[in-house]
Design a protein around this nucleic acid. Structure first.
Lengths: 329, 329
DNA sequence: ATGCAATATGAAATTGATTTCATAATACTA
DNA sequence: TAGTATTATGAAATCAATTTCATATTGCAT
């Protein structure tokens, strides 16, 4: 069943049938005749033929580092909830945290087949920036700020800053920090910078190098807590860049009979389920992950609709969970 | 840049260029001439034109109930790891646990644009089965058994059966069960049947109705634990259909100063991060989620390659974590 | 020298839509 | 009554590939 068959059955030209589906000039009678034939046959225009002719694939490429992660999962959930309601479909690529794959997919997507891209990057190398300039379809970056590009991100810096100050104001003066890799701008660099600026701002410069770097897992949080405590004894507070690390930290402290929060207070970031099921629950930071995914897609759809709109860089707030926060988000 | 341009530059026909990319008859000299032009121009054939002509989209549809869930996230991770290495791309649809949307996507995918489908269903209604019969592309179901269809699933029944027997053998004779909805064949019905058969097999028929039903969240696990304990006092063991529920259960017990495992031993299913960070860690069941995703895709790719192969229904084993299991998986 | 298979080649048809262009029919203005 | 808009219409070109078919060339056996 193709457009020619429908045209023949309805006694009109192929162009008329095309117009029927695309709101062109068409008389009442022909419209009705076509409607009837379409109804009877259950005809649907071929997406591939439309794509070939119009150069619009009606697909959005979504590039994420992984999917079995609480924060990214929630971003993807937000992205898809909006995309589901639109006329676009979702092409998903997982990079397994490999920046090379990120570039690969970005150019693969752009060369061929998507109308726009949502990029949940972790690391933004110079090559990324270079490639982003050459990509011919709109790209919205989520989770990282990149000046000069459409992006939706979280206020990682001020979140960790507030969190650290709250720890200090709470009388925790001997803090340690478990960081993510610095290449990850948001989770690694920004949060750590928040920690450093907060301790400096409160006159505790000696804490600036009280940190170790872990990877994104519970097990790594466990190991790095050991390392942190071996290097800096007598800590009374540990702030971790993610909830997974913080959960690993809690495990270590439990195994070594260190009381939480009496001896050491522990915080993470992300407000994941993990944070709520440890004993005691973690202090953590809530970010609006689903929301950021939704906003990113809406931004992209707008770009696809009316073409260029004003450049937007959206920063979302945060909420500290489990400790009273006396400064605003 | 299209195939005609390349043909002209290389001094051959369009057919020759097409053969160059598709391993047809072609002489050394022409092959070399084309290779050179392709190299210089960076020409890539248009996917949409190929699709229109060949009716192969090189895309696999993946339908999942949600993505921000530990178990499903891991399945998707497995699915994508294999798909990434293949020449297929991934079209993702999230149904938000709405069986109607599941049907919608299934027929949308089949009508238009994918070469095959991976379906991570939760509920398989008669309509599902009916639609699955009519779908013209191969479908592999993951996470649920459906006789007569390609599927990869977990041995939920025997897992919960073993787990329950271990509880009983451990001297926990007053068990309660927190179930998922029965419509979810694997997580709801099968696991609960495992529980019931185990208690019956061990002569504890009175436990058969010691259960409540929760939804898939920590909060629901918390609430339903209250309900379970109000209804059946003096329990010494609680088995939950998922780790999230079990984590909620642990929270409730902690809040009500009930000692775990001294007074009540708690188990979940899924071997998620959650299970390892509670105090004490949950007893749980490890399923091979990534593996099931990988196998499902491999099966699908095989179907797409050599056409019909023998029907396969693959059941994967399990491992009990946190309690010694003296029977095989 | 002839016949036959194997290897190469390109012209043209095909896939299924959209879109341009020319033109027909009608309504409205001067 | 002629001249101009406006509304409808379909023929044909276009998008960018694959594939069929007819044919050309070569090698080899008879």
């Amino acid at each position: 069943m193709n457009i020619a068959d429908i045209a023949r059955l309805a006694g009109v030209s192929r162009a008329a049938v095309s117009r029927y589906f695309n709101d062109g000039y068409i008389s009442k009678e022909k419209r009705e005749a076509i409607r009837k034939v379409v109804e009877e046959t259950g005809y649907r225009p071929s997406v591939q033929a439309q794509t070939l002719r119009t150069k619009k694939t009606k697909m959005i490429g979504v590039i994420v580092p992984k999917v079995a992660s609480a924060s990214i999962g929630r971003i993807v959930e937000g992205v898809l909830s909006v995309l589901n309601e639109s006329r676009y479909q979702t092409l998903l690529a997982v990079t397994q945290n490999d920046p090379k794959k990120e570039l690969e997919y970005l150019s693969a997507f752009h060369e061929k087949q998507v109308d726009g891209v949502i990029l949940a990057a972790t690391v933004l190398t110079p090559e990324h920036k270079c490639l982003l300039k050459t990509v011919s379809v709109p790209v919205v970056i989520v989770g990282q700020q990149l000046s000069g590009h459409y992006c939706v991100f979280h206020d990682d810096y001020h979140a960790t800053c507030s969190l650290t100050k709250l720890f200090l104001e709470n009388g925790r003066k001997k803090l340690g920090y478990i960081s993510a890799i610095q290449q990850d701008q948001a989770v690694g660099a920004e949060r750590f910078r928040g920690f450093q600026d907060a301790v400096c701002g409160m006159g505790c410069e000696e804490l600036m190098d009280h940190f170790v770097t872990a990877s994104f897992s519970v097990a790594s949080g466990y190991e790095k807590t050991r390392e942190l405590l071996e290097r800096y004894r007598d800590l009374d507070g540990i702030i971790c860049a993610t909830d997974s690390m913080a959960a690993g930290c809690m495990q270590y402290l439990r195994d070594h009979k260190i009381e939480v929060p009496k001896q050491i207070l522990v915080a993470g970031h992300g407000d994941s389920d993990l944070a709520r099921v440890t004993t005691p629950p973690l202090v953590t930071v809530h970010y609006f992950y689903e929301k950021s995914g939704e906003i990113a897609v809406k931004m992209l759809l707008e770009l696809l609709g009316q073409g260029k709109t004003a450049l937007q860089e959206v920063k979302l707030g945060y909420e500290i969970v489990g400790l009273k926060d006396n400064r605003g988000a």
